[in-house]
Amino acid sequence: MTFLNFLISGISLGSIYAIIALGYTMVYGIAKMLNFAHGDVIMVGAYICFYAISRFELPPLVGILLAMIVCMLLGIIIERLAYKPLRSAPSLAVLITAIGVSYFLQNAALLLWTPNPKVFPSVVGDGKVELFGGQLTISHVTIVTIVACVAIMIFLTVFTESTKMGKAMRACSEDKGAAQLMGINVNATISITFAIGSGLAAIAGALLCSAYPTLIPTTGSMPGIKAFTAAVFGGIGSIPGALLGGLLLGVIEIFAKAYISTQLSDAIVFAVLIIVLLVKPAGLLGKQIREKV
């Protein structure tokens, strides 16, 4: 039973990573850039949600929606101001700009919301479900997280496969020039991708802080790095890959904490990543691109 307990908390943590990783992967797929500021968008989303729920006493769902809207706008603004002017620049320049944006968001949060940790109220209450006569307890947060992850996954798959916008996204990620010739508005498509990614980050922020309730301006950075790892793990640019990578990473992290060592759990997660990349250099579900000579 303890094994099952760990497995469920692993899947729950993994679902959060997966939601963040989906944002990374979508942005990477279309803009071919590692958006290091993504982790800080999570933090902004969590703060907005926190203020909406605790200060203005809005219902949690409204709080999350508000956080999503703010983060989507933030994502579009960041893309327009910082990344769009660099679209033809070398990838390292864009990477450093993303890091600059990350510093900016963290320090702006530090000024706006002070470094004092905030206790985040759970968006779904503290209830839990007991199974097998109390041997297996699953908190509501866990259930909601997993359900949200699955729902987002289905939504994204349907969206990218069958809507016009989703098709435009896939076209842009394959060849921007050709997409433009076919009459696709590339700029708008990229903006919408950033908006979706940032909206997902807001949901992830609310769920993350419901499970781990301390909120500080650097809350987003470590989950951000882990989710980035998860995206690479599953094969960056692939949506099912991000889900698989996130879930595996969460489960491995919880198992490493439970059975091997709490302090070395991060090291073990990263070691697994290295081994996977050695066997499959493009991640679990990534496409291996043949080089043409």
């Binding site: 910082a82 600059g100 944006v101 510093y103 320090n107 000024l111």
Partner: peptide
């Protein structure tokens, strides 16, 4: 904050 802005502006 200023450091971050300078960094972004220089890259741009």
């Amino acid at each position: 904050l200023v450091y971050a802005i300078i960094l972004i502006l220089v890259m741009l």
